[in-house]
Design a protein around this nucleic acid. Structure first.
Lengths: 248, 248
DNA sequence: CCCCGCCGTTGATCCACGTCAACCACATTC
DNA sequence: GAATGTGGTTGACGTGGATCAACGGCGGGG
């Protein structure tokens, strides 16, 4: 069921035109002036469509570009020789994929589409070139990388110090907040990933994720119907995370 | 026991002079030409000495500079409101601290010296400025940030998918490899952090860390005397990580 | 030198989560 | 509509690591 190599499923020749894109606020060009914005037009090359379950890139692939998600969503994961998988993140529209490849010029993880998706391809050498000239771009790019580091620290906190229900609560609140930023409902959304993928991300087995969902539902914090989530008690979820619910 | 703010313990006026530093190979200037190297002299401002247990910066501090470790070592950690601590990393000479601050212009974690240490202070606005002119610096800086992201993914793998002994084995091999890169013995070294700090980093309690050390010693993989470690069977440790040691 | 505090080790017990297994809800295909 | 497969839920049970507790060793200060 695996493909030999990561090949573009579709590479359409359309220019991406950040200035016209409604994702600027969430994406790499955030905070740039109009004049700066127009200089990006020759940076963002083609778009590429990726079908659900297909890889955008794989660990070991040569690194040439980073990718901005235009539509759809992805997961990134790393694999151990013995087959164990760790999902390292879920990415939504406007977010940047591929930063892991800069350090060794090889991608160090897999990026897989969770649904039919489209990305803007940003050639990395062109990005470095242009960001030497466009200060706003340079600065924003650094912020994007730094944000990724901060996000990863948050996940470490989650994996290293939280119990199962706290992890799931943190995950739901994070998803809710990211949907909100994209103009969707904070309270009601559709998860694109399976229980197993959530579990891998949170360092839990899928059964534990499922049970935690059920318990949240019993306690009136959320309603869950398969992948459709409705948050009923945001504050209750937040409280779960902070109050280490132990005696003493 | 906490200090109000992070103030320089000592700020010596000495220019750092990367070109003369024996850490270039490990540090930000890696791979830069001699002529590029000399342009760094006015980038790296003062050095700063930090006493053991003192913070270099704290979560919430305004971000102004990143730091290259000249001597000593640090830990970085994040705290939850309820007091839980997650150590997100241990840093050694030549490694860069403070990248987490770029995204929000506030530091998002604490950096604490594990021993009396000295860092080179690199003003961030000057770094951006200079890296617009010096291509090698720009590229190397991006690699350093990317490497941090890749490293964090490795820690997630560890926290999310490995059992206690695998985590400790991975930790020891990682330390060994980093000591080697610094010209120290790969087999014998002195840990600067406590069992509790190791435990926090690995998502384990200190007792579990201690027991795993004892078991490694019983199995002839290492000898442990307090913080002094000698690795007897490198391959054995590696095997521990890959072979998911379950029946079936 | 002795005292004291911190750090590390080890043992006994507990419990959160993993494991194993059965079953159910949908979606896809024929 | 039946057949098949994938993903999700739930229950029973086992276990790895947390918790609680006692003790030992080293290092710093009087």
């Amino acid at each position: 069921m695996q493909m030999k190599a990561t090949v573009p499923i579709t590479a359409v020749g359309l220019k991406a035109a950040c200035a016209q894109c409604n994702l600027v606020e969430l994406c790499l060009p955030f905070g740039m002036s109009d004049s700066e914005l127009h200089r990006l037009d020759d940076l963002v090359g083609a778009r590429r469509k990726i079908k659900r379950q297909q890889p955008l890139y794989r660990a070991g692939d040569p690194f040439e570009a980073i990718y901005a998600i235009r539509t759809g969503s992805f997961k990134t994961d790393v694999l151990l020789e013995d087959g164990r998988e760790q999902v390292t993140g879920f990415q939504m529209t406007g977010e940047i994929l591929g930063l892991d490849g800069i350090s060794t010029e090889l991608h160090s993880c897999n990026a897989v589409a969770l649904e039919d998706s489209e990305v803007c391809v940003i050639a990395y050498d062109r990005l470095e070139e242009l960001s030497r000239e466009v200060e706003g771009l340079q600065h924003q790019f650094h912020k994007v990388m730094s944000r990724e580091i901060v996000r990863d620290h948050g996940v470490m906190m989650l994996l290293g110090s939280m119990r199962a229900e706290e992890r799931l609560a943190a995950f739901l609140l994070n998803m809710s907040q990211r949907f909100t930023a994209r103009g969707f409902s904070a309270a009601e959304f559709h998860l694109r990933m399976t229980r197993e993928e959530i579990g891998s991300y949170l360092g839990l087995k899928l059964e534990t994720v499922s049970r935690a969902f059920s318990r949240f539902q019993d306690e009136g914090l959320v309603t869950v119907q398969q992948k459709h989530i409705r948050i009923l008690d945001n504050a209750g979820l937040k409280k779960l995370i902070q109050h280490q619910q132990r005696a003493c």
